[in-house]
Design a protein around this nucleic acid. Structure first.
Length: 357
DNA sequence: CACATTTGACCTTT
DNA sequence: AAAGGTCAAATGTG
């Protein structure tokens, strides 16, 4: 238990450092002609990061209190624990329980991704910048398509508990419902915002033909632009029906950092939306199976929690990277390349924010 | 060999 | 009890 405590602390540190880094980024943006949207996204990301930290701390506190209680209530007796044979199992069960509780309290948000196929078979939009590992697949009652379950690849190495579920929509085969759960505590892509900003800038430049494009803007980016233009907006009329049926009361998270207690009952819609909203434009949609397959996505984020949607529709950029499709679901950090290529954000951009402690 | 996915069993939630 | 979510052994892949 104590060993886990240590891990938790490290993780907490990571999350806090992430928040700090994000705040720095936001601060830097405020001096630049950034779009409001970028700043807002950043702010939301920061909020969410701190929420994660807060809930981690609250959890730790609760755990501590429980331990203290147990200590004072029943003084340590020799025959306290079950026989040697069963103790292991009991411990495992207990741990599992904790896991479930932990996950249940995690922020959760979903979005719809439209995948446009160029005639080929449609594959799941698996690439979103994080590396995921599939751990399950299920038939879902009333749905034609199975739901796939993914967890962050770094679950074991960094204890990152982020998961996602992917399920193809019944009505529109080109739409996938993706539900994310938990913020990434691995620091795989802390700098998404910058990538997005680059994209936006490129977009703007493209709209103003007179503007000299920086030399660094090259083929990849051009293609990217084209794809941005070509992409289809997902129609906004639909209120995700499932958000009401299955999500209604299952999720809660504090909107304001109420320091006390374990916050479980307050709902903040906007804070849950964007935990990693930036983390999800999908770099590589080129299918390795279908050479002509070329797809993009634009998505909406629909929040759980049943609260009134305030600007819940937030569109993000999708991109199609000309980079050769990597294998399967993994395409780590493609956007990182964009960052590095666009040297203008300079040397003082502290990448050590990604310190892996 | 070290990863990934598949898939039936198992567990939790409703 | 049924549905949803996860685990873990078997299997696949580079």
């Amino acid at each position: 238990m104590d060993s886990g405590n240590d891990e938790d602390l490290k993780q907490l540190l990571r999350v806090l450092a992430q928040g700090q880094e994000q705040t720095r980024q936001l601060e830097a943006r405020l001096d630049q002609p950034s779009t409001a949207q970028v700043c807002k996204s950043l702010a939301q990301q920061i909020e969410s990061t701190f929420q994660t930290a807060i809930s981690m701390m609250a959890e730790g506190l609760q755990h501590q209190q429980q331990q203290q209680l147990a200590h004072t209530d029943s003084p340590p007796s020799a025959g306290d624990s079950p026989c040697s044979d069963g103790s292991d199992r009991v411990f495992k069960d207990h741990e599992r329980m904790e896991m479930y509780k932990k996950r249940k309290s995690m922020p959760r948000w979903s979005k719809q991704v439209r995948v446009c196929s160029g005639g080929g078979a449609i594959k799941e939009p698996l690439v979103d910048g994080y590396t995921w590992r599939k751990y399950g697949q299920k038939d879902i009652l009333g749905s034609k398509h199975q739901r796939s379950y993914y967890r962050c690849t770094h679950r074991n190495t960094k204890g990152c508990l982020a998961t996602k579920q992917v399920q193809r929509s019944d009505e529109d085969l080109s739409i996938f419902d993706i539900t994310y759960r938990g913020a990434h505590t691995c620091t795989e892509r802390h700098d998404i915002v910058q990538a997005e900003e680059n994209l936006q800038q490129q977009n703007v430049e493209a709209d103003q033909p007179n503007h000299d494009p920086p030399q660094q803007l090259q083929q990849q980016d051009q293609q990217l632009l084209q794809s941005l233009r070509a992409e289809l907006p997902v129609e906004t009329g639909d209120t995700n029906p499932e958000a009401q049926t299955r999500g209604s009361s299952s999720f809660s998270f504090p909107s304001t950092p109420a320091i006390s207690g374990v916050p479980h009952d307050t709902v903040s819609s906007q804070s849950t939306l964007n935990n990693n909203s930036m983390a999800d434009f999908s770099p590589t949609f080129v299918s390795e199976l279908e050479p002509d397959y070329f797809s993009l996505s634009r998505y909406r984020i629909s929040n759980y929690g049943g609260g009134p949607e305030l600007g819940a529709q937030q569109t993000e950029h999708a991109e199609a990277s000309p980079r050769a499709a990597t294998s399967m679901a993994n395409s780590p950090m493609v956007d990182m390349d964009y960052l590095m290529r666009q040297g203008e954000y300079g040397p003082d951009f502290p990448f050590d924010g990604a310190n892996f402690f």
